[in-house]
């Protein structure tokens, strides 16, 4: 009986950890096996900018393993928010709705257990009606016993159009922005299917060749997996604007919370 229970425990351990993603903002090097598929539903609540601000962004991701350590994903992105804006000294409430489509490619280069360090290259392209976004990541991770470390260097280039009323016409202007981001995640496996940890993110925005801000956010994360699904939650309060001091609340939120639910099939 004891042996049977032990076998169930070992098999269960391997099965429930088929997906090893334990962070929400920091990526790990793992890719899906050839033909394996996953549906992920992302929901990010962002709140607390200058004056009133709250937004909820959703992403629905369909992930497919292509073999040869390559994986691709397709995303449908939908976001809505409300904020107070001020123009010519007059405040008004602004509703914002965003739709976009993204395609992601991820190539695993080395394994976090088999090699000294796990690594992967990541590329994502997002198309929105008024914006194009290109994102590249270098992903590094390592599993040591029950600890998982992950570190990402991210470069994000946004090219958008700004429309301004000019009499009876609208004038358009190109807007370019570069964000350089560093992510670090540390997670500890408490049980076979439960991990807790911390995620840190440092976002640096560069516009018109000027380094505008360097925002540090840091918060706890929890990950739970079971046969066929996994769910991750991260709460990320802004800690500081490392360039300029205080907090940066015009472009960044005071608090972000992200929940990802995934169904593996």
């Amino acid at each position: 009986m004891r042996k049977i229970l032990l076998l169930i425990a070992i098999l269960g351990f391997v099965k429930v950890n088929a997906q090893d993603r334990v962070f929400n903002y920091t990526y790990q090097s793992g890719v899906l096996n050839k033909g394996q598929k996953e549906i992920e539903i992302w929901s990010t609540l962002a709140t607390g900018r200058t004056d009133f601000y709250r937004s909820i962004n959703h992403r629905m991701e369909y992930e497919v393993g292509l073999g040869g350590k390559l994986q691709t994903s397709f995303y449908l992105n939908y976001g809505y928010g409300k904020s107070v804006v001020e123009e010519n000294g007059i405040q008004s409430l602004k509703n914002d709705t965003k739709y976009s489509f993204s395609n992601e490619w991820k190539l695993k280069l080395s394994d976090p257990v088999a090699n000294r360090i796990g690594s992967a290259l990541y590329f994502e392209c997002t198309l929105a009606p008024d914006e194009t976004e290109l994102e590249g990541k270098i992903i590094l991770d390592k599993q040591i016993g029950n600890f998982t470390h992950a570190f990402n260097i991210v470069g994000e280039y946004e090219l958008g159009k700004k429309f301004t009323p000019d009499g009876t016409r609208l004038t358009t202007e190109n807007e370019r922005e570069l964000t350089v981001e560093l992510n670090y995640g540390l997670s500890y496996r408490i049980k076979n299917n439960l991990s807790v940890g911390l995620e840190a993110m440092n976002q640096n925005q560069i516009a018109e060749s000027e380094w505008e801000n360097s925002v540090l956010t840091l918060g706890p994360c929890i990950s739970y997996s079971n046969s066929g699904f996994w769910v991750n939650l991260t709460v990320m309060p802004q800690i500081a604007n490392l360039k300029g001091g205080g907090m940066e609340l015009s472009e960044h939120e005071r608090l972000q919370t992200r929940l990802i639910f995934s169904y593996v099939f």
């Binding site: 090893d20 793992g30 050839k34 393993g65 394994d111 257990v113």
Partner: peptide
């Protein structure tokens, strides 16, 4: 082990 097992789950 790396190629066959590591493609589905963490080693």
């Amino acid at each position: 082990y790396v190629n066959n097992c590591g493609s589905c789950h963490s080693l």
